[in-house]
Simulated assay, not measured.
Amino acid sequence: MKAIYVAMMAAAGIVMAGQVHADEALAKAKNCMSCHALDKKLVGPAYKDVAAKYKAADAAKLVEKVKKGGSGVWGPVPMPPNNVTDDEAKKLVTWVLSLKK
């Protein structure tokens, strides 16, 4: 029984790892990584810093920010609107929030 449990946990980890990489690939495909990095500030904040600042309850607010852009929260450089669907924005936000330190 213990072996089955371990196998199930390992499979779940593989599935989750694949999902995280897929969402990182989406961020790269949508040029998000031109201004953001996982763990250091570029033009915009590091995604790990974004994850640390916001909670999952802020996900809807963050989806709107991804789509519409914004300014003033992380400094004077504005984030432009992004050409993403609602589903893509939700995937990106879920991925970013999963990067908590």
Rank of each mutant, 00 (worst) to 15 (best):
M1D: 08
M1G: 11
K2C: 03
K2E: 11
A3I: 06
I4P: 01
I4K: 08
I4Y: 03
V6H: 01
A7F: 09
M8H: 00
M8W: 02
M9I: 12
M9D: 00
A10R: 00
A10C: 02
A12N: 10
G13I: 09
G13S: 09
G13T: 08
G13M: 13
G13N: 11
V15K: 07
V15M: 13
M16N: 11
G18M: 13
G18N: 13
G18D: 13
Q19W: 15
Q19V: 15
Q19C: 09
V20T: 10
H21A: 13
H21T: 10
A22Y: 14
D23I: 12
D23G: 10
D23F: 13
D23A: 12
E24V: 09
E24A: 14
E24Q: 15
A25K: 15
A27T: 13
A27H: 08
K28Y: 07
K28Q: 13
K28C: 00
A29V: 05
N31G: 05
N31E: 14
M33V: 15
M33C: 09
M33R: 02
M33Q: 09
M33D: 15
S34K: 14
S34Y: 07
C35K: 12
C35P: 11
C35D: 12
H36F: 01
A37N: 14
A37G: 04
L38W: 09
L38A: 12
L38G: 03
L38I: 15
D39H: 04
D39S: 10
K40C: 04
K41L: 00
K41F: 00
L42Q: 14
V43W: 04
G44Y: 07
G44P: 12
P45V: 02
P45D: 01
P45E: 03
A46F: 10
Y47P: 01
K48L: 06
K48N: 10
D49L: 07
V50W: 05
V50G: 06
A51C: 07
A52H: 01
K53Q: 13
K53L: 09
K55H: 14
A57P: 07
A57F: 07
A59Q: 10
A59I: 01
A60D: 15
A60C: 07
K61R: 09
K61W: 04
K61P: 00
L62Q: 03
L62M: 15
L62K: 02
E64N: 11
E64D: 13
V66R: 00
V66G: 02
V66Q: 01
K67F: 00
K68N: 12
K68M: 02
G69S: 05
G69D: 07
G69E: 07
G70S: 08
G70Q: 05
G70M: 04
G70Y: 04
G70T: 08
S71N: 13
S71Q: 14
V73A: 11
W74M: 14
G75A: 11
G75M: 09
P76C: 00
P76Q: 07
V77I: 15
P78R: 03
P78K: 02
P78E: 03
P78T: 00
P80I: 03
P81S: 10
N82Q: 11
N82W: 00
N83S: 11
N83F: 01
V84P: 03
D86E: 15
A89Y: 01
L92E: 02
V93M: 01
V93L: 04
W95E: 03
V96Y: 05
L97G: 05
L99N: 01
L99W: 05
K100D: 08
K101N: 15
K101Y: 08
